[in-house]
């Protein structure tokens, strides 16, 4: 290949963007080691105290809650998304495929504030669910759905589904239909075809989708903030409280680093895992 011209044209803008991002993350890392002076935005000398503070039970329980909510969200998202992705890829009519795609993917682009606000309307004590149930005579007093982990998870699952559906649909679309036909030809019933052929072949998609949603939910902010209403705390809410309410930048920085580490750790664990699974699917 000949040496190509214009290298700097293409390189410098990308480099500038990368430098900005690295600088921003560097700022967080730097603040994490600084002494917090209450009542002041100025930070003092270097210390490790901010990290030690993480060990307090209240912060540990927030971390536990965050992990629990993320895990539940990713599992429910997977369970609800698989049938939709399957229907979207395998529906016989073109119209039906497009319709499912539109219904399933559009929520991704309306933005988190709109989506979260919509769930307040649905889950509130005068909201859609309670009003419908009450007028049907099924409940007397409104159910407390808002400000609970349950409500937060219900909303988070709906937000996460479009991404999961896209990942699963891509995996499903790449399954060679003739493999399924071959299994059926060899005497496997529909359930067996799914269990022994379709599911193993889409397993890499299943794993990567679940891990991506897990990491994604870890960093959700507006949903626990508005639907949790202070009663459900995730790391993101703690960062906001520490950073923008108490102006304790150093501790907010430590929490940000923690969230970053968990997100990167869960995604980093995915790559070898997926290739191993693919190998296993290929062997079996």
């Amino acid at each position: 290949m000949r040496p190509r011209p214009f290298f700097l044209w293409f390189f410098l803008p990308s480099l500038a963007a990368a430098v900005l991002l690295v600088a921003a993350l560097g700022e967080i890392a730097q603040y994490a080691f600084r002494v917090f002076t209450p009542g002041s935005l100025e930070v003092g000398g270097f210390t490790l105290d901010n990290f030690a503070r993480l060990a307090r039970p209240i912060y540990l329980s927030v971390l536990g809650d965050t992990l629990l909510i993320s895990l539940a969200t990713s599992l429910f998202t997977l369970l609800l998304s698989y049938p939709v992705a399957y229907a979207m890829v395998r529906a016989k009519s073109d119209f039906l495929r497009s319709l499912i795609m539109l219904l399933a993917v559009t929520p991704l682009f309306t933005g988190e504030i709109v989506r979260t606000y919509a769930w307040i309307l649905v889950l509130g004590s005068n909201g859609f669910v309670n009003t419908v149930l009450k007028s049907a005579g099924l409940i007397g007093a409104p159910l407390g759905l808002l400000y609970t982990r349950f409500g937060v998870i219900v909303a988070l699952v709906q937000f996460s589904m479009p991404v999961m559906i896209i990942i699963l649909a891509t995996a499903l679309a790449h399954v060679d239909r003739n493999c399924e036909r071959a299994a059926a030809n060899l005497g496997a019933g529909p359930a067996q075809v799914f269990r022994h052929v379709t599911l193993p072949l889409t397993l890499p998609g299943v794993v990567s989708g679940t891990v991506v949603i897990f990491a994604w939910t870890m960093s959700a902010f507006s949903t626990p903030q508005l639907i949790g209403g202070g009663k459900v705390l995730m790391i993101s809410n703690l960062v906001y409280l520490q950073g923008l309410s108490s102006f304790n930048f150093p501790f907010a920085a430590v929490l940000s680093l923690l969230a970053l580490a968990v997100a990167m750790g869960s995604l980093g664990s995915m790559h070898p895992f997926v290739s191993r699974l693919e190998l296993k699917a290929a062997i079996n």
Binding site: L21, A24, L25, I28, S219, G243, S256, L260
Partner: peptide, 13 residues
């Protein structure tokens, strides 16, 4: 991968 609040907080600082 980076949580948006981390990126936002970094750029704030």
């Amino acid at each position: 991968i980076i949580p948006h609040f981390t990126t936002g907080f970094g750029f704030l600082l």
